[in-house]
């Protein structure tokens, strides 16, 4: 086989492409069979819904590739919303200042996670389950069960303003730019090589001069800041800051990252697959809603997809191995 052909075959075999093709297939089938999926309005909603998930999924992908996890992201989002709301109520009326403070807060919350994980050497799963509760709790402490909703309409409409001539919100450009940044860091910079190395074998990475702890620390900071950015968007999109904003979103993000082909054990995965998975889940959810499939069905589908994404390749591998062994066993007596 010629080298380019082999390369194409290998590329088609990667999980990223499988997810991407599934996305296209769902979009096409949806557009042909469900009224409204082809409409620009539909895509506007898909994008609006996907933006916060995508923002958080970007750093989450890198974190999971290093073999860690951050379950506190939705609580960081919630606490950011609460603090923004409280600041607004207390008279901070400059939007840039609010955004800057929110991002700073997110970075600090992420740094706390990072400190516990890298400084004290604690498992990130346990630490971020702890801060999941802690940050969400603090969100309630700050805002109680109040909702802050009296933001200026110019802010809230600006946040979801479509790109000229389309229905797609301009925020997608911000997401796209950040996606490019994260993709370059992960796939084309020395740092990214270190991330894969430490995800597979942290000790060998250390022996090769990778500063495992420092790198992971900054990833948690980035995760906090990006979750805060998602929180800012959430507040403005729904024109409402509440302590329970985005609760449960962490599982949706983790589901998208895993469905996108990132190994939960670290060391494997790519950003393209994750973004495709975020889009796939968004399109599927909205298309099914339009098709009057009860929203609940989607929960079942999300779960099944997630399981299929890990079970499928494993079972296929086991079957291949069994077939191969049967073949060698039947051949060997004659050889």
């Amino acid at each position: 086989m010629s080298e380019p052909a082999a390369r194409i075959r290998r590329a088609l075999g990667t999980w990223d492409v499988v997810v991407l093709l599934a996305l296209v297939a769902v979009a096409v089938v949806g557009a042909l069979t469900v009224d409204g999926v082809a409409s620009p309005r539909f895509w506007r909603f898909v994008v609006l819904e996907a933006i916060p998930i995508a923002l958080i999924a970007l750093p989450m992908t890198l974190i999971v590739i290093t073999g860690e996890i951050d379950l506190s992201v939705a609580s960081v989002l919630g606490l950011t919303c609460s603090v923004m709301g409280q600041l607004w109520v207390s008279g901070v009326t400059s939007l840039p200042l609010l955004i800057a403070l929110a991002l700073l807060l997110g970075a600090v919350l992420g740094a706390v996670n990072g400190l516990f994980v890298t400084g004290f050497g604690l498992p990130s799963l346990a630490v971020t389950i702890g801060t999941l509760a802690l940050y969400r709790g603090l969100a309630y402490v700050v805002l109680g069960d109040r909702a802050v909703a009296n933001y200026p309409t110019t802010w809230t409409t600006t946040a979801i303003q479509p790109l000229p001539g389309t229905t797609i919100p301009w925020m997608i450009l911000v997401v796209a730019a950040l996606a490019v940044v994260f993709a370059v860091v992960l796939h084309a910079m020395p740092v990214g090589r270190g991330l894969y190395a430490m995800g597979n074998n942290a000790e060998a990475a250390r022996f090769a001069g990778v500063d495992v702890r420092l790198t992971k620390f900054w990833l948690f900071v980035a995760s906090g800041a990006m979750s805060a950015l998602a929180g800012v968007f959430w507040t403005l999109r729904f024109a409402s800051a509440r302590a329970d904003n985005g609760s449960g979103l962490e599982l949706a993000v983790v589901a998208a990252v895993l469905l996108g082909g990132v190994s939960i054990f670290g060391g494997r995965g790519a950003l393209l697959g994750v973004l495709a998975a975020v889009a796939l889940l968004g399109v599927l959810r909205n298309a099914l809603q339009l098709a009057y499939v009860p929203a609940n069905t989607l929960t079942v589908i999300t779960g099944s997809l997630l399981i299929a994404s890990v079970v499928g390749p494993n079972v296929a591998g086991m079957l291949r191995e069994r077939l191969r062994r049967r073949r060698t066993t039947t051949v060997s007596p004659s050889s």
Partner: peptide, 27 residues
């Protein structure tokens, strides 16, 4: 069964069934 037979990580499988079982409940 999924974890032991298909040898896939429990975190992923039970996150999946978290959605599945809840979805069945809703339906």
């Amino acid at each position: 069964g999924l974890i032991a037979a298909a040898r896939v990580p429990a975190l992923v499988v039970t996150l999946g069934t978290l959605y599945m079982f809840r979805g069945v409940d809703y339906m």
